[in-house]
Design a protein around this nucleic acid. Structure first.
Lengths: 348, 348
DNA sequence: TTGAAAGCGCTAACAC
DNA sequence: GTGTTAGCGCTTTCAA
């Protein structure tokens, strides 16, 4: 690995001039510049980012923390962030926490050592506590929020999405609708539940807490919850299910199949978050889809805008800015074949 | 951010001693050590990796380059690598190339600036050329190989997997079997095709090149290829399809559905690489499954073993070692419901 | 066992 | 326009 000193020597200039020729071309005479550029090319020179960052106290690096890289939604978020970072000349370092507090803490510690200039995080229940590890770091919360006041958030209209999904089921004539909701210490789960409830109330139906079961976001949780709901006596059993995330929806569909229930004849299902799987299963699933890639891009754009703002001298610690952005993107209800009117209208 | 000097001052020692107390505890007197540790804790000290790496000329960092992080297989590889790196105290920096030569080049350049100690790469057709950007960097090729001699490779038994899949179809009585193969400048495609051919030959069937169509690994390529194969006149049309990767398999299934073909009655399908989708579609898909996570873990373990070996003084540039490892993991043919005997045995 | 000093590669201040 | 010098935070000689 050749250093800038090697380049300088080869070009017959000082290291300082070589550095300027490469980073501030206009501060150097044309012929000198050319000599340096040529020397650099010849040596295949690549600046040592460690040294540069150390000196400039600026790494042009951001951290990205998602909770499950194997979940297509999160992978898409991460890709959106990375692509956007790339466009801005930043490098994004990706970490994965599996919703685990310890892993999250370790990711933050590792990250901290590499001096990222900002952080994009899909928070968990522990995040608010863990973020104390990186004080004064500009942060964007992605997809979920901790309630941390001074922080920029980029999310989706979970309430609206859940409400639309539920209203759709009600419109079809369903009156006993079950919901499989995520952990209620996570904002998306809370909001989706709120939207569900809102639609129920608006339609003048009575909200039945017995039809709302929690799950830990995993396929098996969805399956168990669905199994329980669908095993209720016929006159109590929901005729439709709204499921709060993609993995649990898989489980719910599997449960319905196990019980020999026909979708949508015996049971309507709406999932949250679209997927390859939802599109190609039989019957294709009605879902609330989210603009995952755009979410990632926006989070990154906002973070980097914030960074340049800080750098420009305005704003102090970044986290204590005047009014942090609250970006919210719409969801879209995609009607497919997993929903239909209930077969036997229950006698009230 | 407090520096080691802050810690040293607080503990009434020199920076050198503070450094030793933290990194080489046994070189420091017990009471001193305790003072330093306490000071560090109190300040929430986290070493600056940039400075440390610069000084030690060792970053404890590796690069990981995959071609499509949105593909579940690749996400799983990446996760395996990251988890393993973590266990070894290394940090893995993940990049995504979308099979694009330019992106790959830029990823390598970025990476290079951060001085990774090794690289794990899922190569593309351009990789062999691009790797010249990082001379003397220990490399492990994952899933696919470039043919680069001195390099460790961690792959799957593609030939065996393809052969088993094809033999299974032949065993069911199929004689006209189509294959949708990936780009033939990629080793996995070549090998899977070889395995396919081998099974055909071993069964004494005649290999018909007209039934083998290439694709660029994307869903739409699989669909187009399947559409063409399945539109052949009845007596030429394949009664079974072996598809060389997961995305293209989706396309092939979609094509069969478009044509109103019943799987497996009218058409048997076997895919390469298992997935959520393959398990839950109707009918569940017979596939050759690959141990993706283990593949990632092994690649990382081997790379890091190699690094310690170099560090221990043996071996020079890493890439020019005596005999690089060639790790190959088995695949597994998972029989589900997408394969059955052909309905009408063709009259030869 | 500890401290002083040097230096990893780079760039920003300051001279000239 | 260009060179000299200093220093980012750390670890590692070398001396004491």
């Amino acid at each position: 690995m050749s250093s800038i000193q090697d380049v300088a020597t080869l070009a017959n200039v000082s290291a300082a001039t070589a550095s300027r020729a490469l980073s501030r071309p206009d501060m150097v005479a044309q012929p000198t510049r050319e000599r340096v550029l040529h020397a650099a090319q010849q040596l295949g020179y690549q600046p040592n980012m460690l040294a540069r960052s150390l000196r400039q106290r600026e790494t042009r690096t951001i951290g990205v923390i998602v909770t499950d890289i194997l979940n297509h939604f999160h992978a898409t978020l991460a890709k959106g962030v990375q692509d956007a970072a790339d466009r801005h000349g930043y490098t994004a370092f990706l970490f994965n926490t599996d919703e685990d507090a310890g892993k999250e803490r370790r990711a933050l510690d590792t990250l901290r050592g590499h001096l990222p200039q900002g952080l994009i995080v899909v928070p968990t229940a522990h995040t608010r506590e863990n973020l104390k590890l990186v004080p004064n770091l500009p942060i964007v919360e992605l997809d979920r929020v901790t309630g941390n006041p001074g922080v920029t958030t980029v999310t989706v209209d979970n309430i609206g999405g859940a409400r639309a999904a539920t209203a759709h089921l009600i419109g079809l004539g369903h009156t006993r609708i079950g919901m499989i909701v995520g952990k209620l210490d996570i904002s998306t789960a809370v909001e989706r539940h709120a939207g569900f409830r809102q639609a129920i109330d608006e339609a003048g139906l009575t909200y039945d807490p017995a039809l709302v079961l929690p799950g830990e976001h995993r396929e098996e949780d969805g399956r168990q919850a669905a199994l329980r709901l669908l095993s209720l006596p016929l006159h109590l059993r929901p005729t439709a299910l709204f499921v709060g995330n993609n993995e649990m929806t898989v489980g719910a569909v599997l449960a319905a199949r196990e019980l020999g229930l026909n979708i949508p004849a015996d049971l309507s299902i709406v999932g949250f978050d679209d997927s390859r799987w939802a599109q190609t299963m039989t019957p294709p699933l009605t879902v609330v889809s989210q603009p995952a890639y755009e979410l990632g891009v926006l989070a990154c754009d906002h973070l980097i805008a914030q960074l340049s703002h800080i750098q420009a001298g305005h704003g102090q610690s970044g986290r204590a800015r005047a009014s942090p952005a609250r970006v919210q993107l719409p969801t879209e209800l995609i009607l497919r074949q997993s929903t239909a009117p209930p077969v036997c209208v229950p006698t009230a």
